[in-house]
Nucleic acid binder design. Structure first.
Lengths: 390, 390
DNA sequence: CTGTTAGCGCGTTCAT
DNA sequence: ATGAACGCGCTAACAG
């Protein structure tokens, strides 16, 4: 509980240093910018001493104001609660470090309003570029960015109508990889669980890839509950099988898409209830005990990302107890800490590289590269754990 | 793959707006600062229109340069990988939002060098204050901050020799709460597992509180492995019991502190090996089967925070399989997602409030409050799960 | 090699 | 009610 010293005494400016060193501001500026070749060793020493004595530190704001660039880039993140985001961030930070950029991290916390505000703020602070992991968002919100505005690169998802570089997972390949894995391991009923994807390209692609594989192999049908309103399957509507009749017995595989809006707990409850019915039905219909040496008759859940997987796992654990995985298998895109702990199979994204590449792209744009908008799709890696084996 | 439009055309300045509106810069400035009372409705309309037409956005850098305050505060975070950090961040962001501050998030990623660099950077950007969740760090690194420098408030840990406000968990109470819970549930051998704590006040306090409770109830001894070098028990050295002889049988409770340096995988291996020996010994010595209706003879692990708990859980799961919790109980300070999923008992920190209060404190300092350095200790909440019951 | 001058975009007296 | 002029801290010509 020592008394605190008085407030900041006002920092030294370049003028102070110049006076202290008995010279002009220009020389100080030159010194700061490493133009040593244009300074006599003697003057240089005096400057060094003066800086030391005054504990001088150049004001980056003023600096940026003058030269028109402040080495600041914005990182607009939808959700730091998602391990994916933090991992991407690490790669991005490393790249910034290497390229002499300073990232301003903005956390929208899943609120579109926040996203808008931060974008505005970044603009007024004149960041040189923005890398954005947008939440489902209309192009208009990103207006100040991309095409006409400041350089931008999108991470994980692209935004309709917004021309900009983007880097993320090869979603099609990843979803196919996961689906094939489940099929290869004998599952004949697979539920793909995903958040509302009308607005989010990565979710769309994952779901579409899953659906296509399932249609090629057997049947697919959509869930009625979950999404708000019309759902996202366009004019084609629900296809293939109609009701939840069991088809596994005859050797055909059945795919099902369930939309879970994690932001709407009532909708989550409804979705999970539907899932429960399917799981119970599978348990009844299957004449083999749940610990049979095959996966036929055991339902597999394919979570489109870690938050969904966590939601599912928590629910299943609460409903079926610690041994829930003997009743249902879980596979998730994203590879959070707890996956290893619970033996859940995952598809790990190259998160670090995604972040790194994103910043590299942005840096090129900032330096004036004018090529067409690029897409960088990186492959995911399947990590097989006990959950999907038998 | 549309061709990208040409680079940014240069944003409008206040001068442009003044010209467009057919007036002087001053009026524009007044408008921007809400001094409407000093503007004729007619002029005001013209300004509004001009701003709209030019899509003008004031340059915060220049603004800050002029008035000497930029509403920026730095948030120096040791490890965004730790859920604790993200949760604190959310509270802090909410407070910033409410107080009109813009947080600059800096992620040191557990590297002291990074911490130093970011602090430097924040200083040169003239942030008005800093809230810092330091990694074990010498006071000198924080020199530019606190006392003589810019206002600062510490989160979670205090730094020796640095006078500044601090807000965090009531570590003593939390550790006592956890220890008592274990004792009350019949455990007679408890291992407190913690990262090296010579530099980290919160870890020190937790360990000390644990040790004191154990000494009052029975015995306590230190682990030989783990920490780098001398360990952290000061001149008192190891006390109480010497070797890992079983004492549970005679009704006495035994406490043990194990230091695990998560940054040093070899040390982690050694520490875990010692733990394994103890667990195996307990399993042998206990004449009751591991599923006996009592916890006597079952070892309890008390993790000082979530990263430690995760490390322990992963190891135990790998060694004893999915049913590891029947052999050993786990209690952790911090309440990560996976705790609920795996049924681990925790002590949840009031993270959101910690972040919120930290920013409030900082704001007061920025506004010139001069009281003595304050400590704000918030209570933790015990969340009992299956792991520590029987 | 070194100092002088002129802004960068904005806020703020101080006149009008 | 409104605008001209000066300066924030710094860099970039342009002289000397």
């Amino acid at each position: 509980m020592n008394p605190m010293p008085p407030a900041t005494p006002r920092r030294a400016t370049i003028t102070d240093v110049a006076r202290e060193a008995g010279t002009g501001k220009t020389s100080i500026s030159r010194y700061l910018n490493g133009e040593m070749s244009a300074l006599s060793p003697e003057l240089r020493a005096r400057i060094e001493a003066a800086i030391e004595r005054l504990d001088y530190q150049p004001n980056q704001m003023a600096r940026g104001l003058k030269r028109g660039r402040n080495r600041l880039i914005g990182m607009l993140l939808a959700d730091l609660t998602n391990p994916y985001t933090v991992e991407v961030l690490q790669g991005a930070e490393a790249a910034c470090h290497a390229l002499g950029l300073m990232p301003l991290i903005c956390h929208a916390a899943n609120e579109v309003e926040m996203e808008r505000r931060y974008l505005q703020l970044l603009t007024t602070y004149r960041v040189e570029g923005v890398i954005v992991n947008a939440l489902g968002v209309r192009e208009e919100t990103l207006r100040p960015v991309g095409g006409g505005g400041i350089p931008a690169v999108l991470v994980d998802r692209s935004v309709e109508g917004l021309v900009a570089d983007m880097v993320g997972l090869d979603n099609r390949a990843a979803a196919e990889l996961g689906t094939r894995h489940l099929l290869d391991n004998g599952f004949d009923e697979i539920w793909f669980v995903v958040q509302p994807f009308e607005q989010v390209s990565s979710r769309q692609l994952r779901e579409a890839a899953f659906r296509e594989v399932m249609r090629a192999q057997g049947e697919w049908s959509a869930s009625a509950v979950g999404g708000r309103g019309e759902g996202g399957w366009g004019a084609s509507g629900v296809s293939g099988v109609s009701g939840p009749s069991r088809a596994g017995a005859n050797g055909r595989v059945r795919g099902h898409t369930l939309v879970l809006d994690l932001a709407d707990s009532a909708a989550v409850q409804r979705g999970l209830a539907e899932l429960d019915r399917a799981i119970d039905a599978a348990g009844d219909a299957s004449n083999a005990p749940t610990n049979a040496p095959t996966n036929a008759g055991r339902i597999a859940l394919f979570a489109a990302n870690a938050p969904v997987a966590l939601c599912l796992a928590l629910h299943l654990k609460a409903r079926y107890g610690a041994a829930w995985q003997s009743r249902v298998a879980l596979l998730s895109i994203d590879d959070p800490d707890w996956a290893e702990l619970t033996g859940v199979t995952t598809i790990r994204q190259p998160t670090y590289e995604i972040g790194y590449r994103a910043v590299e792209f942005l840096h090129e744009r900032i330096e004036g590269v004018q090529t067409s908008a690029r897409d960088c799709l990186l492959p995911g890696e399947l990590i097989v754990r006990a959950s999907t084996l038998r």
